[in-house]
Design a protein around this nucleic acid. Sequence first.
DNA 1: ATATTTTTTTCATGACACAAATTAAATATG
DNA 2: CATATTTAATTTGTGTCATGAAAAAAATAT
Lengths: 396, 396
Amino acid sequence: MQDQRESGRQQVFEAIRNANQIARIDIAKATSISPATVTAITSELLSAGLITELHSDPVPGVAKRGRPRVALSVRGDAFLIAGMKIADRHASVVLLDFVGETIGEYSQPIPNGQMGADEFATVIHDVLHAACNECGRRLEDVTGLGLGMAGLIDAARNFVYWSPSLKARNVEFGEALSNVLPMPVFLDNDANLVAKAEQHFGEGQGETDFIVITIEQGVGMGIVIGNEIYRGERGCGAELGHTKVQLEGAMCRCGQRGCLEAYVGDYALLREASVHGQGIPHDSVAALYAHAKAGDATALSIFERAGRMLGMGLVNVINIFDPKLVILSGEQASLDFFDGDRLLEWVKSSVVQVDAPLPEIRVHRWGDLMWAKGAAAYAIEAVTRQKIKGLSRDAA
Amino acid sequence: MQDQRESGRQQVFEAIRNANQIARIDIAKATSISPATVTAITSELLSAGLITELHSDPVPGVAKRGRPRVALSVRGDAFLIAGMKIADRHASVVLLDFVGETIGEYSQPIPNGQMGADEFATVIHDVLHAACNECGRRLEDVTGLGLGMAGLIDAARNFVYWSPSLKARNVEFGEALSNVLPMPVFLDNDANLVAKAEQHFGEGQGETDFIVITIEQGVGMGIVIGNEIYRGERGCGAELGHTKVQLEGAMCRCGQRGCLEAYVGDYALLREASVHGQGIPHDSVAALYAHAKAGDATALSIFERAGRMLGMGLVNVINIFDPKLVILSGEQASLDFFDGDRLLEWVKSSVVQVDAPLPEIRVHRWGDLMWAKGAAAYAIEAVTRQKIKGLSRDAA
DNA sequence: ATATTTTTTTCATGACACAAATTAAATATG
DNA sequence: CATATTTAATTTGTGTCATGAAAAAAATAT
């Protein structure tokens, strides 16, 4: 959080990455850096091997007069980046090239329950090793690993306050990982990684400020302000799931009362169903939802109340941040449980009203892999920053 | 939100302003700018008249060996800055010098009710004129005016979406002001100005990230992230008062239900009291509070519920932002209505628990003038930025 | 009177960005 | 087909900014 000014090199590189492929003159326009400087910087990036020139054959019909522009693009094969997401019993890995193209995917069950830090680091090492083998790469080829796990995490310090995967609290988990892994590791809370995934691969592309809300077992939030994830003082902000929506309300698994999660989380839904007892499934949310869909009023009311609470949470977020864009991001199922369209209508009508366009709310459903891709995106960012900082004009 | 990198000049000047008085060598240490550069920059600032040297007579006893350091400080008389706060029926003005020292204060009743933009701009002109006269200054001597008013305001554009003082909605009020006032005007929401006041004169001095919450008629919030006020996309975020604390809850004057303000605002307290009817005062919160203090259970319960709702709001803010510091800022009375110590205890125990220090919560009570001082601080910032940007090394 | 210490300034240098001029590489045109 | 035109990219010279090293300044210590 120090060198926050984007150096010219960073800006140019970002422009190339964003555009996929782009000519120098357009980089100049996009960044409002002079063409002269763009030439200088791109020649550095070229000789450092971070980007390449794409000489496309001139298409006679479309071609215009003048010297043809030569497109630049990020060299995908410059670095191999890995992203890993740790879930309850599974680790999923994605290998990306430096452009962000998927090189390979891998998933593997891991022991359930809490482990010691070193033990768990070894598991992660082994998973990554297996993933590399699977894709015909070597562990040593991986330039950086992004690692997402549930819990309260201070990303800046690679520090874990608490995680369901670790036995101890307050672990310098980054160090444990460094001991067994040859590449730098970048640790973050999984909600933040969804935000990163949206920023690089999803609905947040090209946006500088937005909020991502994820609904699964719990409710998570990622806040992007000025292209950066906002993390708060201790690195554990954005706990939307533990925002209070009811005074003296339902008991949450965090031990507090009235948390949003205690109404919207899957355990909360099942709890309600189980109280009612006969006739209503209370072992899987999907089954409960099917029951509601089939017309069962009680099951329906469970989802309705949860939906309204979720709506409250959304309204509060919007009233507090006045964001330009809110992305509801999650796996297919979770979002459908709450009658989305009606919910969003209610949210929009319940927000502080101004005579200016309401924040846009986009729903983005996608699969299991996004977590790992977000982790990888985080690592790509970090590696990029590091590699570019290591440049200087005296490099031959 | 563009030229966000602090130029060396800005940094050095800020260091001088923060330190009140400071030698070049210490500026270099504080900013990690080299002494050579500090000399260059300070000589510019000196010849531009923004700062002065303070040659203190050497004190024989304390003096150390070596060339004595000469302290620099901001030249208070460089510019005269005004801050004005528009309230229901009063306008209060404060005149500050460039250091932030109070030159004069002034207060004047203004017509109640909504006015046209030009009409209201004229009122503001007249008030400022009177304030200047009062202090023996001329209107033309004022280099910048910070203006705070209630309502939804986009500070970046000096635009008013809505204000209780203006007849029309969506007013380019900045333009209306430019037509009648000779100096640049900087408009902002009053909650943000409290944040500015705390940052420059209050509990936020030296802090880069904090949240200010104000409790008066409504509940306001100012968010400072990285020394900057966070304003959201349309410039109207941080509406903590209209955060929902109860689904389908009490009617708020904004037309929505369940807003925090609908439980904590003074009209909400009085509404509750008036329903009860006999025996309980329902025309002034102070009277109602006195009644509660005297032991009336009903009156007490009104404040208690409001206090708990306020606590929910605080908890939510902390869970979302994970701030280092929260400042409860307001006039003497409002804060006392809610049993502060107990409230803060509850808040601290209800926040997501991490094994890291809880955010600090400071209570800051102060008088009516803070609004105007905050407005002036905002103007000082803007004027400073502008004056320093206007410098360059070719200046003789 | 001279040495020492500390702050401040001066000076030469390097990184960076830019405008202006130049070169490169294509198409349009008579 | 040679030349003009157009557009992109590069080169060149210049200015700003920050810096390290050396020098100067201004005090106390010996």
